Simulated scan of single mutants.
Amino acid sequence: MKSDLLTRRVAAATPVRPVPARRRRATTRRRRGLASKVALYGLLLVLSVPFLYPTIWMVFAAFKPVDEIFATPPRLLPTEWTLHGVERIFTVTPFAQQYVNSLYLATVIAIGSIVVGALGGYAFARIRFPGAGKVFLVLMTGMMIPGEVTIIPIFRWVAQLGLMDSHVPLIVVPIFGPGCIVSVFIFRQFFLSLPDELEEAGRLDGLGRFGLFTRIAFPLSGPAVAAVAIMKFLYAFNMYFEPLVFLRSPELFPVGLGLTQYQDNYGEPLYNTQIGATALTVIPVLIVFLFAQRQFVEGLTRSGLKG
């Protein structure tokens, strides 16, 4: 009892130090910053709803009967859950093989585009040769030519070589055709931003042109590699027009073309099965983008720094 009374008297006798104004201002700024972050994240969450809702609806639509898919007003969750549409994804068409085909094509095209784009971009950025600017200008004009214009001569060339109904034209044309111009441009702009002192130091160490590329320039081009890889992977995984022209066998179809083959005996689309298969095709695209989104944005940003 006496100790408690003594403690209270000491506390009452001790003067209360006022909180410094600088500390109060810092606390106020932290609270305001926290409130701003909460408001910003809430606003972004609300703005993301129109973009996320179709994907979420697509996932749940795979478990709906066909009549519920066209219900008015549309409902997110099914009133009657069914696995009938999901079960037919792998039985109506060889979807598993088509899925593997798309992954294979996307991986090969992405790697090939990185190699060709890096070599071409490095040549235009770091090697001085007569007419480099004019050649690059002619190369860039290829981006203005629609693919529908060049598909007929490419089709005749592929038919004459006997490469129809194979994956060869689907790999060669995106890597070495007009589609590689964007890859060359991204790598060129990135290599232009590298300091000249890096190559000068490499030359002092006895590196040749190929050594400068493989040991200095290319290892530093991570953002450009990620940007090209994501762009080409998305393009190749969702290919539709080129497979429609060059392929005939369903076993060789990628998923983009295979999704059009979900039909019943009367030729009517199997909507719930088609939607379920479409939802499965989104998975690798999301995985690739989530793991490399920062490098992708940085690569696109740095491609416009110089040149």
Rank of each mutant, 00 (worst) to 15 (best):
A229N: 02
G85I: 07
F155V: 07
V46K: 12
T281N: 03
W81R: 00
A21G: 03
V116D: 06
P65K: 13
L212S: 11
V138S: 01
V158K: 03
T55C: 12
F253W: 08
M239V: 06
T72F: 15
F70M: 14
F129Y: 12
V184E: 04
A21D: 10
M1T: 11
R203C: 11
V92C: 04
N238E: 15
W157C: 05
L105Q: 08
H167M: 09
L170A: 12
I69A: 00
V158E: 01
I171N: 02
F155D: 06
V297I: 12
F51W: 14
A21H: 12
F70Q: 13
P78E: 10
G256E: 07
W157N: 01
A227N: 02
A125V: 00
G131V: 05
I154G: 00
V19F: 13
V49N: 12
F124L: 04
V288R: 12
G117A: 04
W57G: 04
Y41L: 09
Y271T: 12
A236H: 01
V49A: 13
V100G: 01
F237W: 14
P153Y: 02
S166P: 13
K64R: 13
I283M: 15
M239Y: 05
A110D: 05
L247S: 07
F155Q: 05
I230G: 00
K2S: 14
P73T: 15
R24D: 04
D196E: 08
P243S: 12
N265K: 14
G276F: 10
L47H: 02
P195H: 10
G276E: 07
R30E: 07
L270P: 05
L5F: 13
V225T: 13
P15C: 13
A226F: 07
I89L: 09
A236W: 02
V46Y: 09
L6E: 15
V172L: 15
I111S: 08
T82H: 05
K2D: 15
V285E: 10
A132Y: 08
L270Y: 05
M140F: 01
V182Y: 13
S303Q: 01
Y271L: 13
A132W: 04
L137S: 07
L119Y: 02
D165S: 07
F155N: 03
A106E: 06
E87P: 02
T91N: 08
A71F: 10
G33L: 08
Y104W: 10
L257T: 10
A106F: 06
A125F: 09
G85H: 11
I154C: 00
E197W: 02
K232F: 10
K2F: 12
L119V: 14
G304N: 06
R128F: 10
L47V: 14
G85T: 09
A277N: 11
Q274T: 11
I154K: 03
G142L: 03
P18G: 15
K306D: 03
V255L: 05
I287A: 14
V86S: 09
S303K: 00
K306T: 11
Q261C: 05
Y235N: 13
L137I: 06
G206S: 11
A61E: 06
L44Y: 04
V245R: 07
V116C: 03
K306C: 04
P20Q: 06
R29C: 00
I186Y: 00
T301F: 01
G307Q: 03
E68R: 04
R209S: 08
T91Y: 01
V115F: 07
V228P: 00
D4G: 05
V182D: 01
F187K: 06
T278V: 10
V149P: 02
T79E: 09
K232D: 04
V228K: 03
P54M: 14
